[in-house]
Design a protein around this nucleic acid. Sequence first.
DNA 1: AAGACTTCCAACCGCCTATCG
DNA 2: CCGATAGGCGGTTGGAAGTCT
Length: 245
Amino acid sequence: MARTRCYDKSGLKKGTWTPDEDRKLAAYVSKYGCWNWRQLPKFAGLARCGKSCRLRWLNYLQPNIKRGNYTKEEDEIIMKLHAEIGNKWSVIAAHLPGRSDNDIKNHWHTSLKKRSTREYSTSTDSIKRSSNNSYQANSQKKRRENETQLNANESFQLSPMQSCSTEVSSCATIDQNVENIHGEREVFQEEIFEVSSGSFWTEPFLVDSFNTASDCFVPSFDDHGVFVSPFSPVMSYGELLCSYY
DNA sequence: AAGACTTCCAACCGCCTATCG
DNA sequence: CCGATAGGCGGTTGGAAGTCT
């Protein structure tokens, strides 16, 4: 399922994320937020590109992310929105709290697309019958699309999961105890990236300070070293990792 | 049992837009 | 205005896992 691990020309790692990388990223973003995705991996001790880190965080590591087990209601919402606005996965994701656009996209391509095609083919006859009203229907649909887009944008802005800045602020108010990750102190290859001298915004990430208390969300890990989300009611990242490792 | 084929999904890639100096 | 940089999005791919023959 996962891609093989390899390194690109600049020495950045590609492919499957290891539990260790997940811990580093989750711990860093939970504590400091995503202040700059391109610089972040450097400070988090990751040999990854910023985009890769961002994707990993948004799709798997961030709090209250849901995995698998789409409900009937969620399926219907996806089908309905897709029929209205097309492949606007981020907009659709804004209507499904806890679901990432990538996850929804995959779900669409793997199961809903076929279902949609089937339903479309069975309803073709009725569509033909109603073709006389197609012009009216189109203009109504366009209006709906605009409204949907506006609504989606509003909820997108309000969603704590979607914006970087809200991630930072919300993360900064949740309790942190990174020392409990894997039941041990996190040990990084790079002990200290730079001498600490000020606020987070000017201060490079001091990895060894994980054992200090702060107000961030803590990605906790159970005895087996798997991530346990304190938020997800459906499937924690720990459950996901359990299925892998 | 084993090879071929299919399904599923994590992750990458390239493009677009926004922001900043 | 323009170029550089960063974030975000949608399309696509690689490959493990499952199923079929």
